[in-house]
Every structure is written in C-alpha cells, then in structure tokens.
Design a protein around this nucleic acid. Sequence first.
DNA 1: CTGAAAGCGCTAACAA
DNA 2: TTGTTAGCGCTTTCAG
Lengths: 367, 367
Amino acid sequence: MATMQDVARLARVSVSTVSYVLTGARPISQATRDKVLAAMAELEYQPNALARGLASRRSRILGLLLPMDERGLGATETAFVTGAAAAASTAGYHLVLAPIGVGDLDELRRLASQRMLDGALLMEVQLHDPRVDVLRELGVPLVLIGRTADTTGLSYVDIDFDRTVSEAVGHLVGLGHRRIVYVNHSADTIAEGYGPARRTRDAFTAAMVGHGLEPLMIPAEDSAAGGRAALVTALRQAPDLTAILAMNESAVFGLLGELAGHGRSVPHDVSVVSMVTSPHVAELATPALTAMNSPGSALGRLAIETLLRHVDSGDGEIHQQLLPCALEVRGSSGPPRGTAGEITQNQGPAVPDMEAARRRAATRRRA
Amino acid sequence: MATMQDVARLARVSVSTVSYVLTGARPISQATRDKVLAAMAELEYQPNALARGLASRRSRILGLLLPMDERGLGATETAFVTGAAAAASTAGYHLVLAPIGVGDLDELRRLASQRMLDGALLMEVQLHDPRVDVLRELGVPLVLIGRTADTTGLSYVDIDFDRTVSEAVGHLVGLGHRRIVYVNHSADTIAEGYGPARRTRDAFTAAMVGHGLEPLMIPAEDSAAGGRAALVTALRQAPDLTAILAMNESAVFGLLGELAGHGRSVPHDVSVVSMVTSPHVAELATPALTAMNSPGSALGRLAIETLLRHVDSGDGEIHQQLLPCALEVRGSSGPPRGTAGEITQNQGPAVPDMEAARRRAATRRRA
DNA sequence: CTGAAAGCGCTAACAA
DNA sequence: TTGTTAGCGCTTTCAG
C-alpha cells in the first residue's frame, strides 16, 4: 500500500505538494499536478483515511443515527437513507448508519467523543431528544430529520405537513367530496405533542374550514386494528362520509379491510387518500392508494447538504426547511357516488382482512 | 478534549503507561493502574479513534455491506443488523452499515482501500459476488451472510435450509399431512441459482421422498400476487393438498388471502407453514402463522464473532456455520381434516379476529 | 513493572 | 508556485 511519500518520490516533488494536489488547498501548476497524478495512478495510491483524519481533525465520516426496532425499516426511511448516502458520497464523505436511538446514549457518546464523526443526522427525532444534548455538548454538528419541541439553534429538514394536508384535502374537495374524515395518529400521540400528529391535525382543520367544510378528526392506533376501529368510529360519527384521509401507513390498511367488511367499495363509496406514503407501499393495496408520496430521497440529500454546510463552515447559520409530499393519484380516490364523473365499481372484495394482513406485513414505519 | 498526554501528566506516569492501561498489552501494577484510571475519569478522557487507528493500523471499524433496495429492510434483516451491532459494540468495535451492493464496487473500493475497515460482513450475497473479489484483493477480512457458489477459503454463516425444511416437513407429516406443496421463490430466481431457492427445493424433495411422499414445488413471485397465483396453480395441480410450506413472507400473505377466497379455512382445510419468518411478521396473519423463526440476531452475533476471529488472528482458519430456523407452532397448522386429532373449526369467517392478531403482535416481542 | 522515543501517514503553517 | 518541517494523538519497540 503506497503512501504519500512514495508518490512524492516517484513524482520528484515534496509530500506537501502531493497533499495539496489532493486537497486543492493551494494552487499547483498544471505540470506538477500531472506528474503527481501520474505517480498516484501508477502506484494506485489511496490516501489513508485515518492519517488524514488525524492530521486534519476531520474524519470525513458522517453518522446517521437511526433507531432500529423490531419492525424493520420502511420504504420511506430506506429512500431517505439511500438519498443521504449518495449525497455524502458525492461530497467525498462516508455515511455510516449507526443503530442508535434515544436509549443508546452511551454508545452515541462513545462514537462522538472519539472524534469519529464530523457530524450527525438524527432520524426518528423525539420532542425532547437526549441525543441532541449529547451531540451539542460534544460539539458535533447535527441536523434533525423531523423537529424537536424547541428548534431554536437547530437545523432540520422535515416534511411540510401543512402543505401536504392542504393538497390532499384540495384533491378530495376538487373531486366533489364534502364529508371528509381525517384519521390521525393515536390520541396519546397527539396528546404527547408529537409533531406530525399535531401539525396535520391543525392543517386539516384549517384546510376544511377554508373550504367551508366541517373538520372531523379521528385518532387511531398505529396499526391495522387501529385503522379498523377508527373506521367504525368514523362511520358512527359521520355515516355520510365519502372520503378518508389517513395519516399512517399501518392504519390505512386496516381501514381498507374494514371498509370492505362493511360492504363499502373503494373508491366508489369511499375515497381514501394516504399521507406520507412511499409509492412502493401505495402499490400494495387494492386498489392502489392515491397518496402523498413522501420525498424520502430528496430529504436525505437535503439533510446531508445542510449538515455539510455546518461541518465546513464551522457551524454556520442554521437552516430549517420543509419539503411537501407530492400528490399521486392512483385508484383509491374518485368522485363521490352520484357525481357526474362517477367511475366504475370495484370488483368484489374477496376476503379483505387477509389482504390487510398481508399489506401490513409489507408495510412498515412512518416517515 | 483531553489527550493521553494530559492523563499521563495528571497521573504522573508516562504516556506509554497510560496506553498500556488502556490496551492491556502489558502488565501494569494495580497502584499505577488506579492512578491512571482516576486521572482518566477526572479528565473524562476518551481516546481519539483516528490517532489510535493510525498508530495501531486498526480502525476498529467493521463494515456491514448491506444493499438497500426500494423495499426497505425486513424484520429478519433488522434483527440480524441489531444482533451484529450489539456484538461488535461488546467487542469494542464500531459497526458501520454501508448501503453497498454488488453495483457499488467503486464506493466499496474507496472505503476499503482507505484502510477504514478492519473487516466486512456481506449481506445479500450473490452466487458470484464481485464484492468478495474487491475485498480479497485489498486484503480486507470478510464473512459472508449467505454463500457464494464457491466458498472455498471463505468464512460464512447462513441459515441451515436443509434442516429447516426437514423440520417443517416433519411437523406437517407428524400432524398427518400427506399432500404437501412447497411454494418456493420465482422460477427465474431458481434458474439463476439463488442459493436459498435451490437449497430449499432440494431439501424439500429429499424430505418428502424420505417420508415416502411425492414432492410438489410451485414457484412464486416474491409478492402477494405471486402467492395468489401460486395457490391457484397448486390447487389445480394438487386439488387434494392439505398443507402448504411457503418460502417467502410476501407470497404467504397472498396465499392466505387466496385460500380464504376459495373458501378453504386455515388450518382446518389447509395448514400453512411459513419458512424463515420473523415472529413479528408471523403474528400479523390470522391465524398467526406457524413458522420457522429465523435466527436473525443470533446469526448477526455469530457473524461478528467469526469476523473478529479473522481480524484478530490475522486471517486464521475459515469458519463456515449454518443455523437452523426454529419451528414455532402457532395457529396456521393442525391435523388435516378427517383426522383423529382434528381440531375445532375456526370461528366467524368474514372478518376474523384481527384485533387479537394485532394485540399479540403488539405485546409479544421477538424471541 | 515503567519510561523514552521513534514513528503511523498525513495536513498546514512557515519559508522561500 | 513549491519545499521544509512540526505536529495530530496514539502504539510499540527498545531500554532500564
């Protein structure tokens, strides 16, 4: 394994010249550069990352702190990760995924205080996330994916829930729906102040009121069963509902199963729009779900760019940005019954509950 | 941030003594050790990973090469990852997950030739996996999760498909089933020579023949739709089937849905056993799936231990080990209809007890 | 059992 | 535009 010394010797220049060719930290004449490059190529030189890191106090490693529970990683998260990894790689950084959640503070401390990380991205951010404190204390630049309760002085990227909800409601209202129910996260989750639950609730209310409609929100546990229960409640509170907007991927499949069980076809009797969903998951349902596609990979790229700005400019100005989900109309939404543009009915629901179970298996976590 | 110098000064010893206290590479008197430890505690000393790595030529970083496709990570893979991460952490190593598949050779080369990795674990191993060549060429110790076509000189850990299939078949035969269909991966996958598909195919044939039964295998695409199609084929080819053994988690849910659609109840009319399945997923079905629980976390731990043996003992002897999946009987298997031990029929068909399924899934954690 | 000192391979002043 | 050189913080001989 060739070192910089070897390259310098072969190119008949000093090591610093080789170093500067590599880092571009000072101008090098074309002739010299070519010599050096040739020598590097001949020796198949690759800089030693550890030595470089020690000397420059920069590991060129970014950490993606990613709690991993027994449910695995959803398509949305995966898209985020790959987007981030690609962006990091482009910038010459390595992105290491560390399965570190709010409960693994010691492991995080170890990683961070060993000066192994130039910066960190936090996923699954809690309202009061202790990982933020640890990293700040250790002086590690960070960017949140999501938002803590207090975001002053913190950079983050997150989904623009306001706009996402507004567009989803707009889609349904545009189709002619008037009685739209919003199935949110659980009551506990909302009570805890979980960001996405609160924000979508408020956004839904605003959007409905803006259209002169009455907003009805039903909380649901984050599971298919929760979705079922929510539907029962919804039908009781609003027997005339023609459309449902659902916040979480798990519940939406339960909703669909229960709708079929009640003999209501989708989208003929009831339109369903799923929020913050990945195309892959949306396609699993029958009919495929009209959904607000989550901007996973774009978010990942953006998060890395933001983080690198902090890393490079020694903690510059904070950057907080929201990205909306994009509406993608598939088969689960259409005009309400009795409307001009009414579409043909769905075929008979074979055995809906198994459908739902299958989908749940393939469905995973929220964005 | 305190350095070793600071610790040495405070403890009134030399830096090398501090180093030896840390590494344990040579005996230190208890008195000295205590002084040093006290000083480290007082200064909250944490060794600089990069400096240590440069001096020792060991990064103490292990790479988990983990291709990430748009489908995300299943529960089985996640269990593997967390098991491996825990084992690495225990051994004082960091496990970095790199989203590197067979198509990301340049990124892998960059990572490996920069001496960043002391070793690597390869997931989703292909029969002819170019990542193996790259790592070998660069002298990076590796352990496969799975197997290439030629495993001479390669360490690996993998699922013991022979034994897993044999036990699954044994379970069904023991219940009295004679007509058992095996739903494998897709025909293409089998044709490509994908290890698990080939091995389970052969193991199934062997097991059935061993019981004096006729083996019938049906290929299925890795999706719910594939499972549905497979069931139709199976019922045509073997209308008298009483049990199904299914290889993949996606297809099995399609199978179940289609079975119900055909009015065949599980397990009364047809028993279903799912292979290489995580408990979490198995609990999602109704009835919960009798399954061969995959040893995800144990495999992860084992893989790390194997890799560390290579890393520590400068590439010692190779180690190839298989772990079987453990049979866990749940509700989807029982004696065939008309058998002495026939069990009572399932209740209400229309919308079976999804509530219960959810509760079980929520309350029960993996083994 | 402990210390002194020579690097590990690179970066970044400081000079020229 | 290039070279010289002093570290970065640690490990590991070589002495004692």
